[in-house]
Structures are given as C-alpha cells and as structure tokens.
Design a protein around this nucleic acid. Structure first.
Length: 647
RNA sequence: GCCACCGUAGCUCAGUGGUAGAGCUCUCGAUUCGUAAUCGAGCGGUCGUCGGUUCAAAUCCGACCGGUGGCUCCA
C-alpha cells in the first residue's frame, strides 16, 4: 500500500495524495484549466518540473505564466531549444552553459566556425521546427558513469560534471535529439516556447575566464505572450533611439575623434554647458555642506603612486611614465594621475592636524586618465579621460556614521531631488582578503548600516563585495526606461591613511590615525551626462538645457525686434538662440523641436506691436501662450532657479 | 586585451571586379511665410590606412587603425 503525503496549496487548503504523484497530476485534480496553464511547480520553495514525483509533505504551488519564476523556466528551456537547433545545424558544436538571464537567455558553444549574423535567422527557423515538434523535456537522474558516457563528446560538460560533488544529484534533460547536463527545471515541452527571438551573437570566455578559450555565445529572449515579446523589442528600440552617442551627435553635444584618441571626449559648446551646470551644482552644494575645494595637478612624480600602492598594482590601468622634467635626474619619471586620492592626502598631510580639523572634506572636480582596455570603451559611459566629482573625507572612526549619513543625504539631494531619479543601494561587506582587524571591519560595517537605517533607506547586501581596504556603498540609478546605472560609490579606506602614515592629534595630545573615505556622487561627469542624455532622451530640463529659448521671427519685418528680445534674454542670463535664417517658420520650428529647445519664442507683427511673445513649449505642439516679454523672462528665471524638471 | 561584425560626402545610407551615387546638412539665389520639412542651383569623397592579387579593386586577400555587440575589467 502506497504512502500518503500531504500537500499545502497556496490557499492554505490541504490535499492528500499518494507519494509519487506528480505536480502535473495534482494540477489536473484541481482543474483542467490549471493543468493546461501549468508551467512548473514550486515544491517546498524550490521550482521543479511538473513531471517530478512528489515524495514528501510539502507546500505546493502550481506556477503558471503569471509567475515571474515561470518566465525564468521558459527562458531556460529557450536556451535548450536554441542548443537543440544549433546541434542540428552544426553537429560538431560542443556545448557550454545556457542559463536564463535577466532579460532573456544565452547559450555558449564551442564551434569550429564562429557564428555570423546570417546564422541567427537560420538557427531561429530551426528552433521553430523544434518548437513545432513539441518534444517533451524529460528529466533523468543518472550516476556519474552514465553521465560521462552520455557527454563523452562534450569536454565542456565533462569538466562541469567532474566538479559536481558525490552528494549532488546528476540530472540530465532530453528534448528530442538534444541531451544536456542540467539542473533544470524546464517547461513540459518545447511547444511551450512560442514567442522568442534571437538577438545577437558574441564571443565569451569559457567560464568567464580570460585565460580560457573563447566560446561563441548566442543571446535571445522569450516571453509567454506575443504582446510581452513585442513590448520588449519596442523597449530595445526605444533604448536605441535614446542612445547617447546618437543623440550626442544629433544635438551637437560632444564628439570622439580618431585624431585625438579613443575614450577621449571633445565637449562641444552645447555639451560643455551641461558639464558646466553639473560642476556648478555639485561645487555649490558641497560648499554648503562643509567641504573645501582643492585643485591638484594632472601630472605627478611616479614616486607618489608607488607610495600609494597604485604602482604596480594599478599600473595596467595607468598611462606609461613620462621622462623627467628639464634639469631633473634621468631616473625621475612622471605619471598622469588615474585618481586624486594621493594628492588630496598630501593636502591633508601638508601640516599637523588636530581632532578639531576633522572631518576634513576635500573636494575637486578633476580630470584623471585611465588606460582602459580598448574593448571596454563605450561612448561617454566608459572613457579614458574622465572627470570625477571626487572628494575625500578624513575623519575619526566615531565620525564615520555621520559622514556616511551626510553623503547619503547629498546623494539623495542630487540624484533624487534635483534629477528625480530613483536609485537603489547596496552595502558591500568585507571580502576574504582584507586589510585591518575584524573588529575594525565590524565597526565600520555597522556604522555604514546605521547611517543607512537612520536615513530610513532600504538596501541590499553584497556580502564579501567590499574592497580589501574597506567596505562601501554602491548606488545604482534607475533611468526613465528602467535601466540601472552604476554611478555613485561611497568607499571607506583604511589602507591609504596607513601607507601615508596620516595622523591627527587627539584630545589626549597623542597621535591617532584618521579614517579616509572616497566618494563621487555623479561617478564621472562623462557617464552621468550619458545617463542624463538617455534618461531625458535629449530633452533636458530648462536649467540644464544647452539652449533654453529659440527666438523665431516670423518674417523679415520682425528680425530686429526678435534680435532685441534675444539680447534681452541673454542679458537676463538665459541661453537664447536667435534663428533668423531665411527659412519658413514651419521649418525653423521643426528644427527647434528636433534640437529639443525647451522654449520657442515666436515673434510676429502682433507680438511686436503688443510687446508680447508667442511661447511654444517643446513637445506641446501648436498650443501657444501669448505673454508679455517681461513676464516670459520672469517665468524662465524662476524655473531655472528652482531647477524645475518640467519642461 | 579576447571573439565576431562593421568602416563609401559633415550625417543617414545605396553601390559584389570595368570612369563614385541619393536624401539631409552646408553655401548661393528666389520666396517673407502665424506653429514639425518652400523651390532651384552649387560645394563636398584618392570609398578608414598600408600592402597584396588582377589588364582593372569601394568591391577579392592580409595587416594595422577606429567603431559596434559581447567576454574580461570597471566610474
């Protein structure tokens, strides 16, 4: 007689079935509609195949298309269908890993000939045949010998197999002709994969290790409904339209030119306005918050970076040394700085410090240069010449919490209040290899989390993710279309004060070692401007907009009056552009809209006579607003002063 | 740095071995216009660079430079 087991369903009801019943059978008992919609099951918290027998008492949830976990299962199966198709078209292809990822899935192959873009439609077509065949996903648990036999022609799978411990269950999934070493779970059959698309092929190191061979990775995505797939493809298109490199050219913000070098930005006048506003914003704000500004050189003796420990540790990221300056010994070398900390430390160490000086907050919006690998460069987001809104805070251990609190407040002011951005925080804690005692780390981590909690912030934990010299808080910014950007970091540092033997005199008249913190709110101005371009899709808020008003005379008769208005606006500190070109009004309005000018001030005969201006707001169509010139100027000034986000 | 793909006018792109093209931008002329493209003309390219194959190369091959998508790295 079979044993009975008790299952607890999400509605808290209980169901007793014979041990060995599958989740699919339970779903059928509950209702045929549920059985049909079922993708997988959550048994005792673990997502499993519907076909797996239930052997013990457990909470059971049948997962349908509604469940986010089911989407991961679908995508995982999508990766297998991809591999099934690739193996048919490229029988010699060896298989690596094929997991679901945030927005889709991929599969890695070791194939004699790399995939070309033309291969993707072929593979996709073959995938549709695999889907049509509706192969069931069959799970087998096998012993090691059996697994070795099945994957004898797949060295990558064998490598993975040998890493599995003796207690690990070795499971193998088969769909039609394709067999994979895989933990699962999967959808019931390949026919469930209805809405998918292959996106691109790329190289990827086996196991993410740059010393291992390069595999060919194919990325794709899948959804349960056609609408969801199409919405995703539209999102990708939208992201492409917002691409800061395209908008940067269209709006004439910046360029990167071969004659200058990769990763080095030429800021054109319009882009420079944005950078200037950001610098002003952060410098003004920082001064209000008790920081001091400093300026330090771009080039220093190499010796400084030896002392700081950056050489040779960071050398691969630094530009090579320059010869000695005139009159110096030959062996003296100079370096362009990749970071500012050693220089700010020298400012600190330039005289004796008292506990009364602390916290000392030194800020500098500074250019630094890093010799980044060529393949990592990307528009404004990854550059070699970068502008950091850097600051270093020197304080006592008991001041850490307040300082972190202050930084979080500044971060929230800039990102949240000024730019209306949402963001997420992660606290990265002590790694295996670390400098300093456990007590010191514990105190520091507690100070960080207390500061976070005092601000009422929720945050994630990145256990072991801190640098060896101290814990940190990473800030990830979310943009208008939901993408996350690494920007702000707040980093504690016990290493550099040690290396530079920094001291302050305490109330006890004895020397003490200060703690140091690094922080950049924007991260780099380059990346932040890139983020802003994509976040606002080039339509910057008035205060940030390179061009704030475009003055448009309707016909030649109003050019003089329009010029006077333009000059009046300029005199009021407003960035006005006069467009008196010999083109139709329609043409010039279109141009102003495309260049994302927030306001258009149209001047016709009526406006000249009445001392008014016809105001058109960017993106608002032909709805116009006739206002007296003085009132228009006042409105603009108020909106600029308040850094209003609209328009 | 690694893998793949790409590089034609300022921009977007067409041109698969036989004398370099279009639209937009720009300049000039006409038009003087009431809220997203007026008409016409003109300027503009040793087809990324160097080398090779060929009677002949934008086109085929190689190297290099630059870009794109990823990997590694990372602000």
């Amino acid at each position: 007689m079979t044993r009975e087991i008790r299952l607890i369903l999400p509605d808290r009801s209980e169901r007793t079935v014979p041990a060995g019943t599958t989740a699919r059978e339970v779903a059928q008992q509950i209702g045929p509609r549920l059985a049909k919609a079922a993708i997988a099951a959550r048994v005792d918290g673990e997502v499993r195949d519907l076909s797996r027998p239930l052997v013990a008492d457990a909470p059971l949830e049948i997962l349908t298309e509604e469940s986010p976990d089911a989407l991961w299962v679908l995508r995982h199966s999508g990766a297998h269908v991809l591999a099934t198709a690739v193996r048919q078209l490229f029988p010699q292809a060896q298989i690596g890993f094929g997991p679901p990822i945030d927005d889709g899935f991929y599969y890695d192959f070791d194939v004699g000939r790399p995939f070309t873009p033309e291969d993707l439609p072929r593979i996709e077509e073959r995938m549709r045949e695999v889907v049509k065949a509706d192969f069931p996903f069959v799970r087998d648990e096998v012993d090691r010998e059996e697994a070795r036999r099945r994957f004898k022609d797949d060295p990558l799978k064998l490598e993975r197999l040998e890493e599995l411990g003796d207690d690990d269950v070795i499971s193998v999934y088969t769909d039609g002709p394709f067999v994979d070493l895989c933990r699962g779970p999967h959808v019931p059959s390949t026919g469930r994969l209805k809405h998918f698309k292959l996106l691109h092929a790329a190289g990827a190191y086996w196991r993410g290790d740059s010393r291992r061979q390069m595999l060919q990775r194919i990325y794709g995505t899948a959804y349960f409904t056609k609408d969801a797939l199409e919405a995703d493809l539209r999102r990708r298109e939208e992201a492409e339209k917002r691409d800061h490199r395209t908008l940067g050219r269209q709006l004439d913000l910046f360029s990167i030119q071969e004659d200058v070098g990769p990763g080095l930005i030429l800021w054109h006048p319009k882009g420079a306005v944005i950078q200037f506003q950001l610098r002003r914003l952060i410098e003004d704000e920082v001064l209000k918050r008790g920081y001091d500004l400093v300026y330090t050189p771009h080039v220093t003796r190499e010796q400084l970076f030896r002392r700081s420990g950056h050489l040779p540790w960071y050398e691969h990221n630094q530009y090579p040394a320059m010869a000695a300056a005139a009159g110096e010994a030959e062996e003296v070398r100079y370096r362009v700085k990749p970071m500012n900390c050693p220089l700010h430390i020298l400012v600190y160490a330039s005289r004796q410090r008292s506990y009364r000086d602390l916290p000392l907050r030194l800020a500098e919006v500074a250019n630094v240069y890093r010799n980044e690998l060529s393949g990592t460069l990307h528009g404004l987001l990854r550059v070699r010449g970068l502008t950091m809104d850097d600051a270093h805070i020197f304080c006592r251990e008991d001041q850490i919490e307040d300082e972190i609190f202050g930084m979080l407040d500044l971060t929230d002011f800039i990102l949240g209040k000024v730019f209306g951005l949402q963001y997420r925080l992660d606290l990265a804690t002590r790694p295996e290899k670390k400098l300093g005692s456990d007590e010191q780390w514990a105190a520091a981590e507690q100070a960080l989390s207390r500061a976070l909690e005092r601000r009422g912030l929720t945050y994630g934990l990145d256990v072991g993710g801190g640098a060896f010299y101290g814990p940190k808080i990473d800030v990830k910014v979310r943009d208008a279309i939901g993408r996350e950007w690494q920007g702000t970091t707040l980093q504690l540092d016990y290493e550099l004060p040690e290396r530079f033997q920094l001291e302050y005199t305490g109330t006890d008249n004895r020397p003490h070692r200060p703690v140091m913190m690094h922080r950049a709110i924007f991260g780099t101005i380059e990346r932040f401007v890139g983020l802003l371009i994509e976040h606002f899709a080039g339509a910057f808020p008035l205060w940030l907009s390179p061009e704030q008003v475009r003055v448009l005379p309707i016909a030649e008769g109003q050019v003089e009056a329009a010029r006077r208005l333009h000059e009046r606006l300029r005199a009021a500190g407003i960035r006005s552009v006069l467009d008196d070109r010999n083109d139709t009004l329609n043409y010039r309005i279109r141009d102003a809209e495309l260049m994302k000018a927030p306001y258009m001030a149209v001047v016709g005969q009526r406006e000249v006579e009445q001392g008014t201006v016809a105001v058109r707001v960017r993106g608002a169509g032909k709805k116009q607003d006739i206002v007296p010139v003085a009132e228009f100027i006042e409105r603009l000034r108020a909106a600029i002063a308040s850094r209003a986000l609209e328009p």
